[in-house]
Design a protein around this nucleic acid. Structure first.
Length: 473
RNA sequence: GCCGGGGUGGCCGAGCAGCGAGGCGGCGGCCUGCAGAGCCGCUCUACAGGGGUGCAAAUCCCCUCCCCGGCUCCA
C-alpha cells in the first residue's frame, strides 16, 4: 500500500501478526455530510472489507469530532453551527452526528468497531496536554497551551513542509506564539463559554488535533498500523498528530502506514456552497442507489482525483444493472441446472478472475482494476450460463466468486425489495393469462400488459418458457 | 512564493518501460413474434505540447502549457 510518509508503495506488515489496527479521521459534526465524506469513507470501507476478506482481524476506529477546530478568531466550527441554528453546541453535534450515522448506513458503510466522541474524552485530553507541558514540548500563553514545533526536529516529515517557509497565512498567527507553526493544544475561554472545561490552567477547550491522538492511542494502542483520511488532512492535522503523539509516547512511528484519499470534485472543482456545486450524500442518494454511488466512487483509484458528473453516475448505474441482472439470472439458472455437468475451462477462468481481483486489491487497493475483473466475470458467466455443458456446481462457483467480489466492494447489498406476496400472486395471475394470450397469437394484448406494467416499474422479460420479472421501482 | 495531485480514444477511467485493462455510449450482427436481457464484431497512428535517454517511452529525464488542491475551516 502507498504510504504518504514515504511517498512510495510498501509491503503491509502489522505490529501484531494477523491483526490490523485502523484509525480514520471522522467528520466534525457541525453540518450535513457531503459527497466528499462519502468518497473517503466508502474507500476506507473497501479497505476494511478487503483486510477482513484476507483474514486479518481488524480493529477499526473512526472518531466524531464535536469540540475543537480552533480558529485564531477564538470561534470554533461547533460554536458557529450552534449560533446559526440557535441551539446549544451539543444539540448541533448530536443532530449532525446522528445524520452522519444515517448517511453512512445508507451507503452500506460498515460500522467501525469504535466511534469515539471528542467531547467524551476531555479528561484524557487534559492529561495529554499536561504531560506534554511536563515533558517540555508545550508552553502556556495565559490559559492557552501551544505545542512547540521547534522541539521536534523531524516536524514536517509527513507533509514535507518546512517550518521556516511557512510565511503565507490565511489568518495572522497569534503573535504570542514562539513560532508561527506552533499549534494550539488547548485554547482558553471565558468560564461561561458554551463549550468549555475546567483545567489546572484555567477554563477552555481543546485544540483541533489533540483529540485524534488521544482517542487513537486510547483504543488502538500507542502505535497503530493504518491511519487514514482525506488528503486535505495531511497538513496540518496529521502532521500535528504525529508531532504530539510521538512527543507524548517517545515511540516512533506513531503510525506505520498513512493512507490519504484524493479529492472529490464536482464540475472539476472542489465543492463549495458558494460555487453551487455542493452535494450532500442525501441528495445524491435520492437519485441513485447506494450500489451505484459506491460503484462510481470505486471506479477510480482512491488516491486520484474523482470528478462527479451525471454521466459518470449513469455509467455506474449501467454497470450495477448488469451485475444485478446476472445475480437474478444465476438464481434462476441454478434452479434448473444439471448437476454433474462441468466445463473445466469455465471454472479455471472464474478462478483466474478471482485471483486477479485479489491481486488488484492487494496492490494498493486498486478498486478500478478489481471492478474490471468483476465485469469480466459478469461477461464470462453470461456467456456460459445457459450452455448445456455447464453444470450446477459450475454456476455455484461463479456465483460464489461474484458474491465475494461484491462483498469486498460492498456492492449489491441493498435490502431486496420487500416483496408483498399478494402483489406477486396478482402478478402471477396476470402473467399466466398473458402467456395464454401469447400462445394464441394475441400479441397486441400481451404487449399491452407488458408495456403498462413496465410504465409502473415492473419489467417483464420473456424467456423461452417463462418470464423474468424485475421490479425496478 | 512553497508543497502536492492531475491532463489517456466520443465519455468515465486503469496502466507508470516491452503483446491497445475494463466499462459507458455509438454502429453492425446473432437470438426473439416483437421488446428486453444476453452474446459476438467494429468503434485500433489514445496517451497535453516540445526536446532528450533507451533496442524499446503513455510510462524515465529536462522545458513549456492547462486544470485542481494544501499552506492553521475541510474527508
Amino acid at each position: 500500500m502507498f504510504n504518504t510518509l514515504s511517498r512510495s508503495l510498501e509491503v503491509f506488515e502489522t505490529w501484531s501478526p494477523g491483526v490490523a489496527t485502523v484509525y480514520v479521521c471522522g467528520p466534525t459534526v457541525y453540518d450535513v455530510a457531503h459527497l466528499g465524506h462519502a468518497r473517503t469513507y466508502v474507500a476506507f470501507d473497501a479497505v476494511i472489507r478487503f483486510l477482513e476478506f484476507m483474514g486479518y482481524g481488524v480493529k477499526y476506529s473512526r472518531n466524531i469530532t464535536d469540540v475543537g477546530h480552533l480558529r485564531e478568531t477564538g470561534e470554533d466550527k461547533m460554536i458557529q453551527g450552534a449560533v446559526r441554528l440557535r441551539r446549544h453546541p451539543m444539540e448541533v453535534a448530536d443532530k449532525y452526528m446522528m445524520e452522519f450515522f444515517s448517511d453512512m448506513n445508507s451507503l452500506g458503510i460498515r460500522r467501525p468497531d469504535i466511534q469515539p466522541r471528542a467531547s467524551m474524552h476531555i479528561p484524557d485530553i487534559i492529561d495529554a496536554v499536561e504531560k506534554l507541558l511536563d515533558k517540555g514540548y508545550a508552553y502556556r500563553v495565559d490559559g492557552s497551551v501551544y505545542f512547540d514545533v521547534s522541539k521536534v526536529p523531524d516536524y514536517g516529515k509527513l507533509s514535507k513542509i518546512r517550518v521556516e517557509e511557512m510565511d503565507v497565512h490565511r489568518v495572522e498567527p497569534d503573535p504570542r506564539k514562539r513560532n508561527p507553526a506552533d499549534f494550539a493544544l488547548w485554547k482558553e475561554s471565558a468560564p461561561d463559554y458554551p463549550l468549555c472545561w475546567r483545567t489546572p490552567w484555567g477554563y477552555g477547550f481543546p485544540g483541533w488535533h489533540i483529540e485524534c491522538s488521544v482517542m487513537s492511542m486510547k483504543y488502538l494502542g500507542e502505535q497503530i498500523d493504518i491511519h487514514g483520511g482525506g488528503q486535505d488532512l495531511i497538513f496540518p492535522h496529521h502532521e500535528n498528530e504525529i508531532a504530539q503523539s510521538e512527543a507524548l509516547t517517545g515511540r516512533k512511528p506513531f503510525v506505520r502506514y498513512w493512507l490519504h484519499t484524493g479529492e472529490l470534485t464536482v464540475g472539476g472543482k472542489g465543492m463549495h456552497k458558494s460555487l453551487g456545486n455542493y452535494l450532500t450524500i442525501k441528495e445524491v442518494l435520492k437519485n441513485y442507489s447506494r450500489s451505484v454511488v459506491r460503484a462510481f466512487i470505486l471506479s477510480a483509484h482512491y488516491r486520484t482525483p474523482l470528478d462527479y458528473s451525471e454521466k459518470a453516475m449513469e455509467q455506474a448505474h449501467e454497470n450495477v444493472s448488469k451485475v444485478r441482472n446476472l445475480l437474478d439470472d444465476l438464481a434462476l439458472a441454478e434452479e434448473t441446472a444439471v448437476r454433474g455437468n462441468s466445463n473445466p475451462e469455465f471454472r479455471a477462468n472464474v478462478d483466474k478472475l478471482m485471483d486477479e481481483f485479489i491481486n488488484s486489491m492487494s496492490n494498493d487497493f486498486n478498486t478500478s482494476n478489481a471492478l474490471a475483473s468483476l465485469y469480466e466475470l459478469v461477461r464470462l458467466t453470461n456467456l456460459h450460463i445457459n450452455r448445456p455443458d455447464v453444470g450446477l456446481e459450475d454456476l455455484q462457483q461463479a456465483s460464489t466468486a461474484l458474491r465475494n467480489m461484491c462483498r469486498v466492494l460492498g456492492l449489491m447489498e441493498e435490502e431486496r425489495e420487500k416483496t408483498q406476496t399478494q402483489v406477486y400472486e396478482l402478478l402471477k395471475i396476470l402473467l399466466d393469462v398473458r402467456r395464454e394470450l401469447r400462445r394464441r397469437g394475441l400479441y397486441d394484448l400481451g404487449d399491452r400488459i407488458r408495456k403498462e406494467l413496465g410504465e409502473r416499474g415492473i419489467l417483464v422479460e420473456d424467456l423461452k418458457d417463462r418470464e423474468k420479472v424485475r421490479i425496478v421501482r
